[in-house]
């Protein structure tokens, strides 16, 4: 299955180009990491501030490769029965009830307890077999033929125990089920893990992954992103908008605006048929990209300076 996807990852430029067609502008750094991840067969741990397109990267990778995306959202308390597999208790129960009568028939003629037990031994562990296994996202990602993109989202929110059992999947692409044994991947999934850095990930996990840090983009890259995502915005306004956002990020804010918020704002400006960034318009729409009252106050103080500079620069 690998070779017919090789063309997608033939070179770093191809990746950049392909992702752009799928609507995601990736920097050289991102493309290089994707390239390495594919050829070395390693997962990528993506870190960076919220809203710079970490999750989007995985989604686009799935679109680009034309394979399904399996997403596992992590949270505190997530355990293997929700992430990996669970036994179908109901089915097991139902089957024991149905087979109860069958069992009598089957054991007929057995003279002693020993004989019936040894007869039963011929059928070992019917109830703990693959038929009764309910695959959860991680296991189904391993079992899917043709490969998948597996996104383990916000892995920093999960517990340390969960992280520990991710290790087996990340390094060997296999899962050990105590009752059955090891289940190997039919085809290796392309794995991305994202983290917002609410806690430091363990060394062991980091060691198994390639690490990608996505920072807030450079002005040029951000203009490019806005161009692709909000094509209706005029070029002039796009320049002003990006310059404005870049300056706002330099202020000491509780939550600096991210790319997704820039895109939201660009869409709002398109809806309002704005032709240029005048301070009044900005003041009315500040809340689309600033999410704290304190932040809005800080930006309002500097509003005229920033807007003026943005107009000059564009």
């Amino acid at each position: 299955m690998k070779h017919h996807r090789d063309q997608h990852f033939a070179s770093i430029e191809d990746i950049q180009h392909g992702f752009e067609e799928a609507g995601y502008i990736c920097s050289q750094q991102i493309a290089t990491t994707l390239f390495l991840a594919y050829h070395l067969g390693k997962p990528i741990l993506v870190e960076g501030p919220a809203g710079v397109g970490k999750t989007e990267l995985a989604k686009t990778a799935a679109t680009y490769l034309r394979i399904p995306l399996i997403r596992l959202q992590c949270y505190e308390g997530l355990d293997e029965s929700k992430a990996l597999y669970e036994w179908k208790y109901g089915k097991q129960l139902l089957y024991t009830q149905i087979l109860k009568d069958k069992l009598n028939e089957f054991l007929e003629g057995a003279e002693s307890l020993d004989a019936s037990i040894s007869r039963l031994h011929q059928y070992d562990d019917i109830f703990f077999s693959l038929h009764f296994l309910e695959p959860r996202p991680l296991l189904s990602a391993l079992q899917r033929e043709g490969g998948t993109v597996l996104l383990v989202d916000e892995v920093d929110k999960s517990d340390q125990e969960f992280e520990a059992f991710l290790l087996e999947i990340l390094s060997d692409f296999q899962v050990s089920v105590p009752e059955i044994g090891t289940i190997r991947a039919i085809s290796k999934p392309f794995v991305l893990l994202t983290s917002n850095n609410t806690r430091e990930m363990s060394e062991a996990l980091k060691r198994r992954c390639l690490h990608l840090f996505i920072p807030f983009p450079e002005p040029k890259l951000e203009r490019e992103i806005i161009r692709v995502r909000v094509p209706d915005l005029s070029e002039n306004l796009r320049g002003q908008l990006v310059s404005f956002i870049q300056q706002v990020r330099k202020l000491d804010l509780k939550k600096p605006p991210s790319i997704s918020e820039t895109i939201d704002w660009a869409r709002v400006l398109v809806l309002l048929h704005a032709s240029s960034l005048n301070p009044d318009l900005v003041r009315d729409t500040l809340n689309t990209f600033l999410k704290f009252e304190e932040d809005i106050e800080i930006v309002q103080e500097h509003l005229y300076d920033i807007a003026g500079k943005a107009l000059r620069e564009a």
């Binding site: 050289q28 750094q29 290089t32 990491t33 390495l36 990528i44 741990l45 870190e47 430091e200 980091k206 060691r207 992954c209 390639l210 690490h211 990608l212």
Partner: peptide, 10 residues
């Protein structure tokens, strides 16, 4: 970029 992805992890 490649070395950064493989060596530096924070």
């Amino acid at each position: 970029d490649s070395l950064s992805a493989t060596l530096a992890k924070s």
